[in-house]
């Protein structure tokens, strides 16, 4: 056993924390370890009584009065989120329905473009509706990105 490798064992011995039998036996025959224990004791002796002051007499009243003011009621812990709640799921069918209607209207408008007859006559008839769906998805994605910082800030506030 060397001092460098076992100073933690000496701390355990000095403060009587954990198994100290091995260290106690070693210290009997090791002057270096005894000197280290002596050093800890010296520091403790020097520091003893430092700032051993009583709290001010008026502190109790001040602290307890301020702490329990009506505005300082114990806060309720935030409920842990149990995943997606019911409300967002309820909103899915109407949003999907609105999306389908919007695709239908926009697709009809896109299908009227002369582009389809001239440049891509061989494409299936549903192609304009696919383009309309992509356009709506892109607009929705951009709107989500724009709103994300606001939603994050609102969430932190609550």
């Amino acid at each position: 056993m060397t001092l460098e490798g076992n100073r933690n064992a000496l701390l355990a011995l000095h403060y009587r924390e954990g198994d100290t039998a091995g260290a106690a036996a070693h210290v009997e025959s090791c002057a270096e370890c005894r000197a280290y224990l002596q050093a800890i004791a010296e520091v403790e002796g020097a520091l003893g009584g430092w700032m051993e002051e009583a709290p001010p007499a008026d502190l109790r009243e001040r602290v307890l009065t301020q702490a329990t003011l009506p505005a300082q009621l114990p806060a309720r812990p935030r409920k842990k989120s149990a995943g997606i709640g019911g409300a967002p799921l309820m909103a899915v069918p109407p949003v999907m329905a609105m999306f389908v209607i919007a695709v239908q209207h926009l697709g009809t408008y896109v299908a009227d473009w002369s582009y389809w007859a001239v440049v891509a006559p061989s494409l299936p008839a549903l192609a304009p509706f696919g383009v309309a769906a992509l356009m709506l998805a892109a607009v929705g994605g951009l709107a989500s990105l724009a709103l994300a910082p606001v939603l994050v800030l609102e969430n932190r506030k609550s």
Binding site: V63, L64, Q66, A67, Q72, L73, P74, A75
Partner: peptide
């Protein structure tokens, strides 16, 4: 101690 009180829960 204000925190101890308000955060007791």
């Amino acid at each position: 101690f204000t925190r101890v009180w308000t955060m007791a829960r």
